[in-house]
Design a protein around this nucleic acid. Sequence first.
DNA 1: GTCTATACACAGATAGAC
DNA 2: GTCTATCTGTGTATAGAC
Lengths: 236, 236
Amino acid sequence: MPQNTDNQYNYQSFQKVARFSKEDFYKQAFVEDCNTIRIKKEKVAVKNLEKIFEATFRICTRKGFQGMTMRDLSTESGLSMGALYSYFATKEELLNTLQRVGNSFITRVMEECVAELTEPLAKLRTILRTHLFLSEMIQPWFFFSYMEAKNLAKKERENYIKAELSTEKVITDILVEAEKENLLRTRNHQIAASIIKAMLQDWYLKRGKYAKRGITVDKYADIVIEWVEVYYLQTD
Amino acid sequence: MPQNTDNQYNYQSFQKVARFSKEDFYKQAFVEDCNTIRIKKEKVAVKNLEKIFEATFRICTRKGFQGMTMRDLSTESGLSMGALYSYFATKEELLNTLQRVGNSFITRVMEECVAELTEPLAKLRTILRTHLFLSEMIQPWFFFSYMEAKNLAKKERENYIKAELSTEKVITDILVEAEKENLLRTRNHQIAASIIKAMLQDWYLKRGKYAKRGITVDKYADIVIEWVEVYYLQTD
DNA sequence: GTCTATACACAGATAGAC
DNA sequence: GTCTATCTGTGTATAGAC
């Protein structure tokens, strides 16, 4: 992971220095599911999983998972109906796989990003930036995951909620820690964390709007951090 | 409309003093669509529209509009399949109607709420509170509208986006006006408005979370306004 | 104005050839 | 490992009785 001594930590360095990329996402999908996937050649499977996932995101952005038919997916991915079903048992299974793979990918990256940091404010800034950079890198996944969470089966939906709250908890904990070291004002940190979370989510939910206005992810990160700092560093 | 000389403006007074309520929502739906609705007795129609809309919200919160079948809707609303189809021509038409009615209702209320106010900061606070109170009163509609916007036909989807941006524009304009009168710091008001919009949306998108934590809409309004004021009134 | 019964299109899923 | 052809259930929508 990058040594995030702050200023030089931007989206470009995140992509370069980090030990992961979009491709790892699909490789991880294969490794996690290779027992249920009928195709055994890793190279073939990873390539097709990428086609399937990307096609799913494209279609679902327009009409949602329930609105996507397997024939849509077949056309858009370039695989036949039969081929599709050798990568997952049912349509619902595809949804579960997508959610699970994304969540474990994100959890891993978020944990790695602050592993070497100790100073609370640096940690806070890094967490916020990393979350935004991640949601920039795999925006379609974040959007999809948010929009389709309600269609998950019970067990998988619980996982989703756990992951949601865990991000918020990470932020809350850092805020509490920073206040203890007198680096921040006294505030209701849990509430603040959920407001901050809302700002982070807006990035991947309204990606098109920000793109149209020429706001890059680095710019947006600066904006969020500015709001947080003004809120927490303001002197009366 | 209430004379919103601020402090006493809360959710209770919003409901009491305002010239509208949840019931008006359904009445408006009938008036707007009475030419396509085959049922001519207003009392019957309004009562059934309420059943249909409420059932739609309940089902779609769980499985989305595409996931809802007409049989689901028939069961949940207590009307037969045949009866349902005398209120709208197709399933898609139901979606369009819901979006349209909600949008015009909201537009009307938001315009009325600041009609008698001139002081920019009072206007700002009132706009923010009113938006939150509205999304509290018809939360299921806000949630539904946000989640299903992508399923709309072209024309109706354009309307949705227009309405979205219009809220943001109203906030931006007030911020610009307030800065001109030296009531606020110089900031990028359009960006600020979109951050504020994200906070407002979080209320209806994460209603359950806030309820679980005992945060009322009045409390949440105070929180949002605090963030905005700290951001805009802070002195260097 | 509301119901039941039904048409018929299209969805998810699979078998078996290549 | 991938394809085409096909089965079967379920979806939207309507006709016509009450």
